[in-house]
Amino acid sequence: MKRIAAVGGFFVVLILVWEALVRFGVWSPVLVPSPLSVVQYLVRAIADGSLGQAVLVTMRRLLLGYVVGVAAGLPLGLLNARFKFFQDTLGLIALGLQTLPSICWVPLALLWFGQTEAAMLFVVIMGTLWSVLIATDTGVRHVPPIYIRAARTMGSRRLHTWTRVILPASLPFVVSGMKQGWAFAWRSLMAAEVYVTILTGFGLGHLLHYGRELHAMDQVVAVMLVIIAIGLLADKALFSPWERFLHQRWGTAK
């Protein structure tokens, strides 16, 4: 309780100092909007639906691309770990493409798909896929062989061994790969949205971009805050439960 109060106090003071610095003209409102104006923008944008619409568009791209990326990355990672041929070919490609920042796919995606949802999806999938694939591969390789031997003596075979032993045993790697994939996807999507106008939908990145074009600093900062909030929320909602489970079971945290 005391801790929550201290944290709350810290942020209240931070915002007050910010407001004061703008109000007394230390920071120019052209460059730094006051917290109040940011809140006013947020209220306005929520009321007229433009913010909600942008969040919806962005989240749809992100989630759809992410799900496809994970759904493809997991089995490909397993295939990679299982067959030498895939490891030598696909594994090499994955390693190479993972080092490519996924924003670098945008020019290609635009030429292939035009200024459409497909281009955005493609960029998000490229951000997710390779991280998940490599993490799954690594995870499977790190499964102690004795787990598999023990499972075999208990009557576990092929598919059962893969789904009930190898996959859960590599879960710590897989989850951190999924988390990295999420981070890559989120960053590349934002970059892509700021960078190009997509005709089929107006996302958060576009809102940010047009804030700059219109010199609306309150909009710029407000949208940045929304992007941060979504990132935090995703972390808490999507990954924290998994990580808590892993720490508890494996005994990896305090």
């Binding site: 075999r152 859960p168 079971r249």
Partner: peptide, 20 residues
């Protein structure tokens, strides 16, 4: 091959950490 009629106990416990 391995069979349920012959169970093995290893030097390391080989218990699965993802299960209780």
């Amino acid at each position: 091959g391995p069979g349920r009629d012959r169970m093995v106990m290893f030097q390391e416990s080989a218990l699965f950490p993802w299960l209780d």
